[in-house]
Structures are given as structure tokens and as C-alpha cells.
Amino acid sequence: MFGFLQGKDAAASHRLARTSLFAGLKVGELNIVEGFMHERRYLPGEIVFDEGEEGQALYIIVSGRVVICHPGAANRPIAELGAGDFFGELALLDDSPRSAQALAGEATEAAVLFRGDFERLMQSHAPIASQIAMQLARHLGQRLRAMVAGAGGVAGQ
């Protein structure tokens, strides 16, 4: 009760607030986003999605660990993600094929935002969707800079 009187502390304790994608959203806005989320549980070693598969959703790790790798190369992971991290974000932008495989490294619980729901959020609640889209753009920008820096390093060698 009187949830609207709760300030930043309430927002910080929200399970979605641990994700950088939703940074800056108030508790009421996080509750709205929560309404669009689906929950999934994965067993250790279970595939979340495959490389080359048509992407439809973004995944946020609530608990557990997810390994991003190429098929059959789980021992040489591209990235290892933990609680609060998100992956599969390009699926929110288009239906291009997934660029890598996602595999549950241990028992994992994920919150899933489907592209159709994100589009509905954009239509019906543009301020929240635009904040998420801005965070997404920042995240992709950071990744692009890291790639460019990596390529520069290789070229320098």
C-alpha cells in the first residue's frame, strides 16, 4: 500500500532494477515493465537459444549463470553472464538470426521480454520504452567501442 510514496530505495530493491537496461526507471515504471515479462527456468546445460535462430525476445538473468558461445564450444565461451546481466537484446530491434548460442551454465531463472510486447510498450507507454531504448543504445555503443578497440589492438600487433 502507498507504493507511490516509496522512493528510490523501493526501486533499487526491485528485481529488475539490478539490470542496467532498466536503470533510471521508477518503481511504478518497473512494475509496468514487469507486467510484460515472462518467466523461464533452465536446467544446467540447457540451451536458451541457438546460433542462427530467429530472435524474438530479450533475456534478463534473475539468478544463475548463462554462457554465450559458439555451438559445441562451451569450453571457450565468448562471454559469461550472471544475475542482472541481459542478452539477446538485438532481438528487440529486428528478427535477424542470433549471432551465438546461449547456454545455462547452472540452474538459471530468466525474465523474458518479447519483441511484440516491447513494441506494445513503445506504443502505449513511450517514455518507459524510450528510456529502455536509450540504455540499449548505450549498451550497444559500449560493445561497438570495445570491438573497435580490440580490432585496433590486433592491428597494432
Binding site: 523461464r40 536458451v48 535462430e53 530467429e54 530472435g55 518479447f114
Partner: peptide, 10 residues
């Protein structure tokens, strides 16, 4: 099931 989740949601 998880394997069919994205397609079914679609």
C-alpha cells in the same frame, strides 16, 4: 517447453 517458447510466443 523452453525449446519451443519463442516460436509459441510469436
Amino acid at each position: 517447453p523452453n525449446a519451443f517458447f519463442e516460436r509459441t510466443l510469436y
